[in-house]
């Protein structure tokens, strides 16, 4: 508990400085509405993500938090409003979607590793095919990343031979191999057995400490509290409350936030 508080303090201090020096948001979402048929899943979302910030989105199932995350790299389309990523407007019909996506790493709930490739090949595919790096360069970077996520000895393994936690760590390394400007995490620990959650969260904490910009949709309240610079609570397609973890978890203002937190904490 003491450890957590201390870590939290240092990390917020770091972030405070860096956020101040990067005033322009890396991602900004303005008045975004999304419909699935007649059902409105996002009801006017406004949101900004600054460089080196860790933004955690929490909320009950069906609140639209994953949908919002998936809109950021256009895995979902939206019908109204605009999203600007790295200075480019996602609503622009002439936009090169692939160019946006390669700047945003994404980690999925179900890992989605490529099962017909070894771990190393999973990591070097996009850097060599999309970034046109040489194989040697990509392999070197991939090995660095595998070491970082603690899987240096698994480069020749196929995904099916790995545990869920190991697969998710490979998936994080795969996204990082593209050297993205920000990482999007879509419930990265929800499909894991409880004993494997920590190893994945630890990798994510390291990333946050290194100053990676992260948007994390999660049910891990401990992570949100400890690592998040800002927490957003979503319910029924709206941002109901946002603020520092201390504010949202310590003194929630909204009744819906209180009700949700009383169930999960």
């Amino acid at each position: 508990m003491v450890d957590t508080a201390a870590a939290n303090q240092t990390s917020t201090e770091d972030k405070g400085q860096s956020t101040a020096s990067h005033r322009k948001p890396l991602i900004s979402v303005r008045g975004v509405h999304k419909f699935f048929g007649k059902h409105e899943v996002l009801k006017g979302i406004d949101l900004e993500v600054y460089a080196q910030e860790v933004l955690v989105i929490i909320g009950p199932s069906g609140s639209g938090k994953s949908t919002l995350l998936r809109c950021l790299n256009l895995l979902e389309t939206y019908q109204k409003g605009e999203i600007i990523v790295d200075g480019k407007n996602l609503s622009d019909p002439k936009l090169n979607v692939d160019a946006i996506r390669r700047e945003l790493g994404m980690v999925f709930q179900q890992f989605n590793l490529f099962p017909h490739m070894t771990v190393l090949d999973n990591l070097i595919l996009a850097p060599t095919k999309v970034r046109k790096q040489s194989r040697e360069e990509a392999v070197q970077k991939a090995r660095e990343l595998l070491k970082k996520v603690g899987l240096a000895d698994k480069e020749n393994a196929y995904p099916e031979a790995l545990s869920g936690g190991q697969q998710q760590r490979v998936a994080i390394a795969r996204a990082l191999a593209m050297r993205p400007k920000a990482m999007l995490f879509d419930e990265p620990t929800s499909a894991l057995d409880p004993e494997m959650v920590k190893e994945v969260l630890d990798v994510m904490k390291d990333l946050a400490r290194e100053g990676m910009t992260m948007v994390v949709v999660t049910h891990e309240m401990g992570f949100a509290r400890e690592v998040g610079d800002r927490v957003i609570f979503m319910d029924q397609g709206e941002i109901v409350e946002q603020g520092t973890p201390q504010d949202v978890f310590g003194h929630p203002n909204n009744e819906r936030t209180k009700a949700f937190l009383s169930k999960v904490l």
């Binding site: 692939d98 996506r101 999925f108 590793l113 490529f114 095919k129 999309v130 593209m178």
Partner: peptide, 17 residues
């Protein structure tokens, strides 16, 4: 599974790649 296509696209691969 659809997730395979999504994972590939999220890495910046084009549809044909």
């Amino acid at each position: 599974a659809r997730g395979q296509m999504e994972a590939a696209r999220s890495l910046g691969l084009s549809h044909s790649m």
